[in-house]
């Protein structure tokens, strides 16, 4: 899949750098949130992803040990283009993802749902996303709840800014 090269991407990366958010260090509360979401939705994987220039980093995750994915393979590339929840009920039915290596090979993703992590009007950090090995439906209630999870994740990220540990990660 081609990396969406939309005009705001460079700006977004600049804002991400300015935000002072540490994209990779683990935050236990975020992992807890992922586990909670995974149990709630009953999917195989729940993750908080952050999109840097080259990588999609799984800042928090439940159900997988993958830490990062090359940016051009990230499903969340599409999610961050909008403020709405993106749902791919069955990847094999969706021409955008049918031939994706993570669909045709390990981990054989058949279902994806992602809510953008909206940090500020001009900065979407990444996505709160769910994936599963079998197709499923995702109702309006599910979407609303996923959005709430994404918002909770952003709140945790914002709180993490106030911690001394995050100061070292601040951009110049």
């Amino acid at each position: 899949m081609d990396q969406p090269n939309h005009p705001g991407e460079i700006e977004r990366l600049m804002r991400l750098a300015e935000s002072g958010l540490d994209v990779s260090s683990r935050i236990p509360e975020l992992d807890d949130l992922c586990r909670d979401a995974r149990d709630h939705f009953g999917t195989r994987i729940a993750a908080v992803t952050m999109l840097t220039r080259d990588l999609q980093i799984l800042k928090a995750r439940a159900g997988t040990e993958i830490e990062a994915v090359p940016r051009h393979l990230a499903f969340c590339n599409v999610t961050i283009l909008s403020e709405k929840v993106m749902v791919v009920a069955d990847t094999l039915e969706d021409p955008r993802f049918r031939d994706h290596p993570m669909v045709t090979g390990e981990p054989f993703v058949r279902f994806y749902a992602g809510a953008p992590l909206v940090y500020s009007p001009d900065l979407v950090l990444g996505a709160f996303c769910l994936t599963d090995g079998k197709p499923r439906t995702f109702s309006l209630g599910d979407r609303a709840e996923l959005t709430a999870y994404a918002e909770a994740a952003v709140s945790i990220l914002v709180e993490s800014l106030d911690r001394p540990a995050a100061v070292g990660g601040r951009a110049p």
Binding site: S139, L140, G141, D142, A144, E145, A148, E151, S155
Partner: peptide
């Protein structure tokens, strides 16, 4: 019931 879930999330967000 699904709509109720949406309403609840809306209420949660409003409260937050």
């Amino acid at each position: 019931n699904d709509a109720l879930r949406v309403f609840r999330i809306n209420a949660v967000r409003r409260e937050r």
